[in-house]
Nucleic acid binder design. Structure first.
Lengths: 270, 270
DNA sequence: CGATGGCTTGAATCGGCTCAAAGCTTGTGG
DNA sequence: CCACAAGCTTTGAGCCGATTCAAGCCATCG
């Protein structure tokens, strides 16, 4: 696969290419627009605050970010995770003010596209315009799935589902392979994402390890039994709408190819 | 306010006008596109099924619809409510297949816009294109707020919040006034929307009535104490992004103007 | 080497769920 | 115009997944 690496906008181009076949010029235009103005934010720093008037379309070029809002008792809810190549929703200029805040999870490089440039990008090429629509629609679909998760999946299923989703989103842009992925989320972050208490997330992660489904260490997560995880979570990747390049077979492979750990010892506890 | 009533697309035009100042021709173009192909569906009938390949952009012209997905144990989760003038998300043609199903709550008239016509609409006028983006972004914002509700608000707050939201969405298109609104949702629907069990919704609705906050009857809901409801729900209407025409003052008025019921008798129970 | 932030553990509690049954409405057909 | 069915609403009792509170532990980093 052609890799426009070296460029900061690599992830973005790769992501938009998932949906549409971009020409060389289109790729270049996207790169230009997205890297004309960049901003680096250190891990755990706020990127924008609720109530701000967004002046740019914000796109994550490198690192992980999130959108969140605080609840009454001071615990926050993460409303979206933004991985490389994804836009931070609602930082879109059309809306008057941000209805939630944005924070960097890792060190992050953002691309900030001015409204005029964004409009220009959309008007120049129908292909690009549709790719941007696709991004927006997929981000909507992810939110629907989160709503579904919050009401239909219990703690362990929710976390397993989140892991499957993140793995697919990362691997689709080449940021994860072999059922291993960078994993900068703390248990507190996971709690804020899944709507669980940190304590319960802790116990649930222990359970996932005990079941030999995952292995976590040094900011990296390994899916020991991808198929088992996907089964547990009832993970159906259709909502990510990756199918243009990522055909159904590939998706299946991605999660269902890892060797099941089988009955090979080391799990002798109730 | 100019009222394009009589036309099926009245609600749609009114809704898009919330964001942008549409010219007479633009309004006409929207009406034409949205009513060229319509479809009536009886209450409780399915409009589209998960897995379908959407062939049109679907917009609710009259009535209420919802998007949903079934959970393991047969209980369903409603992922979105679609009121007159709103589009059913993800029925957008760009996505290959529906990742959830659509159902009519009341009798419904849908407008179905062919992809070519939709594209045409977007290209013809920047104003219209931005209004459609706005619609999409607001629908995303509503989903974020639902996610927030599911984790940060308890049963009574969640239901109160839903009521406030629906009232604002309806009144913004002129489909509700005076803190009264049509209310076709059954308690089972509310349960499927808020992620609660029908039994618990029942008890919670009783509580809302006992608190003299709402009064429900004959498919109509009356907010007896709009400010009290909004307080209870910690309802902040900013996420609906109605502010262009609906200035902050008007929004405040809408929910905070009704006379508090005061201490005027009739609530002498525990 | 102390401190900060993340992870782990236990015990008690609770909001909302399940199951089960009975009362209401509303619409339909005879 | 009544009777019945179907679906919605209501009530009670018992239960459970997840929470809260309160420590203690463990790494990492300046």
């Amino acid at each position: 696969m052609f890799d426009p690496s070296g460029s900061l906008a690599g992830a973005l181009v790769r992501r938009l290419s998932l949906f549409s076949r971009l020409s060389v010029e289109e790729r270049r235009e996207i790169e230009l627009a997205a890297t004309a103005r960049t901003r680096r934010i250190a891990a755990r720093e706020r990127i924008a605050a609720q109530g701000d008037r967004p002046r740019y379309v914000s796109i994550v070029l490198e690192g992980w970010a999130c959108g969140y809002k605080y609840g009454r008792e001071g615990n926050r809810q993460i409303l979206g995770l933004y991985l490389p190549g994804e836009h931070c929703d609602s930082s879109i200029y059309i809306l008057d003010r941000l209805d939630h805040s944005l924070e960097a999870i890792t060190d992050v490089t953002m691309g900030e596209i001015a409204p005029a440039d964004f409009r220009c990008l959309m008007e120049r090429s129908t292909t690009i315009a549709e790719a941007l629509w696709w991004e927006e629609l997929v981000s909507s679909a992810i939110k629907r799935e989160w709503i579904y998760s919050l009401t239909q999946r219990n703690a362990i299923e929710r976390i397993a589902h989140l892991i499957c989703e993140l793995y697919l989103r990362l691997s689709s842009i080449g940021a994860a392979t072999d059922h291993r992925m960078p994993f900068p989320l703390t248990q507190i972050d996971i709690a804020a994402t899944t709507g669980l208490s940190p304590v319960h997330v802790n116990r649930t992660m222990q359970e996932l390890r005990r079941l030999q489904l995952i292995c976590l260490g040094g900011r990296e997560l390994r899916m020991l039994d991808p198929a088992g995880l996907a089964d547990l979570a009832a993970f159906e990747p259709d909502y990510l709408h990756l199918s243009e390049r990522w055909t159904r077979e590939q998706q299946q492979m991605t999660l269902h190819s890892g060797a099941r750990p089988g009955e090979s010892g080391a799990l002798k506890r109730s």
